Simulated assay, not measured.
Amino acid sequence: MTGAATWIAYVGPFRFPWGEPGSRRVLGLAQSMAAAGRDVVVVSGESGPTTPVTVSAASGAGTLRHVGAGERPPAGASMVSKAVQLVVRLGERTVRWLDEQPTRPECVVVYGGGAQYMARVGRWCRRNGVALVADVVEWYAPHQMPGGALGPPHLSAKLALRHHYPRCQGIIAISSLLERHYRARGCRVLLVPPTLDVFEVKPGGRAVTTQAGPLDVVYFGTPGRKDLLTPIIRATDAVSRSTPVILSVYGPSAEQVRDLVGGAHLPSSVRVPGRVPQQDVEDIVRNADFSVLVRPSERFTHAGFPTKFVESLACGTPVIANLTSDIGRYLQDGRQGFVCADHSSAELERVLRRAAMLPRPQQEEMREAARATAESSFDYRRYAQPVAGFLDSLRGRR
């Protein structure tokens, strides 16, 4: 499989590389490790490939490969079989894969999986003298998980966050809230926000003027558990009665959006193309005037960090958002987009009217600032040396 003298296993029951939002986090961080000269094998939850294959989206002195450990149940599996694999046996196949390697990795980085997965991988690392690092990107609220507060997924995630992650030799945190939390627990922590290959993203799009047609605003993602789509729709509808504006919603179906707003019909200013392939999202965002993202001010929204915010800036598309997580570090009102004071529809209405009146020169400046911020703050190369230094600091901390 892999016989490199020093290498890193980045493991978890996720899909890779574009199966779910979390895999974009894995890809960006793995690219930083490879750029710093590490040989990285991403061990995902899929059933294949059965031997590591090179991932083309890597640059630097190291290598980036991907293999599937088969942790995720097959699509046709029964409910009982899925429950046994995800609740009882999760992590067994990853550990088996690690045991099969001719050399032990320098460290194992874990993304997701919950308590059972962390317990198995943690035991393997302790037994083999391998450093264990947790890539922590969420602090889940009960309503985000199937079964609520007493459901197995929430209990597993809570146990991992509070017990297993602090026992790791290192923590890579996606937000300053998580960084502060684990530093207070005495953990060695590195803060790395969502990253991607910014220079592979082509910026562009059109600059809006009040005479150039309606303001083109885009939302993409999955509303309900984090994002608030209803106030965005209500604000768009209110603004559209006097100012041309179109909101395009990508991700949920029209029926799901109607259920969210509680009406039989959506406003004419709202379009719902539905789900599109991940590779099409970039073009959609690039050609919009603004992307929009609002979330409630809760611990779980401040602990995570929306990848869609990073993707929008990389496309050169300014963002309309309220300040959750660390967004305020990168979004200055009137520079990379507009800041909403809160997530109310009244505040969104005020900001949308302001965006619709933006003169062309200022719109172009805003697009340039958005892209510049992505290049300086979210490109994976920016974190290659900090990640390398962090991993070096873990030697001897088994």
Rank of each mutant, 00 (worst) to 15 (best):
W7R: 00
I8G: 15
P17K: 10
W18I: 07
S23V: 09
S23G: 11
A30K: 10
A34N: 13
A35F: 00
D39T: 03
V41P: 05
T51M: 15
T51I: 11
A61R: 13
H66R: 13
A69R: 01
G70E: 00
P74E: 15
A77V: 09
R93A: 09
R96V: 04
W97Q: 10
W97K: 04
P102A: 07
V108H: 14
G112M: 02
R126T: 04
R126W: 06
G129I: 03
V130I: 06
V133F: 14
G151S: 07
H154M: 07
L155I: 10
L155P: 10
A160W: 05
R162I: 02
H163I: 14
I171L: 06
S176L: 04
R180C: 13
R180Y: 10
Y182I: 09
R183N: 08
G186K: 04
C187K: 06
C187R: 10
C187L: 09
R188A: 03
L191K: 04
L191H: 04
P193E: 15
A207V: 13
T210Q: 03
L215D: 05
L215E: 07
D216E: 01
F220R: 01
P223W: 14
G224P: 06
T230N: 06
R234K: 11
A238F: 03
V239W: 12
S240A: 15
S242Y: 01
V245R: 08
I246W: 00
Y250F: 15
P252G: 11
S253V: 12
D259P: 00
L260N: 15
L260F: 11
G262S: 05
L266A: 15
S268D: 15
V270Y: 07
R271P: 01
R275H: 09
Q278L: 15
D280V: 13
E282D: 12
N287P: 08
F290S: 06
F290C: 05
R295C: 06
E298Y: 14
T301G: 12
T301I: 13
G304D: 11
F305V: 05
F305Y: 14
F309M: 07
S312N: 11
G316P: 01
G316E: 01
G316Y: 00
T317W: 15
T317K: 12
T317F: 12
T317E: 14
L323K: 03
T324A: 08
D326N: 03
Y330P: 04
Q332I: 13
Q336P: 05
M357W: 15
R371G: 12
S377I: 02
F378H: 14
D379K: 01
Y380P: 08
R381F: 09
A384M: 05
A384W: 05
Q385G: 02
P386C: 10
R397F: 13
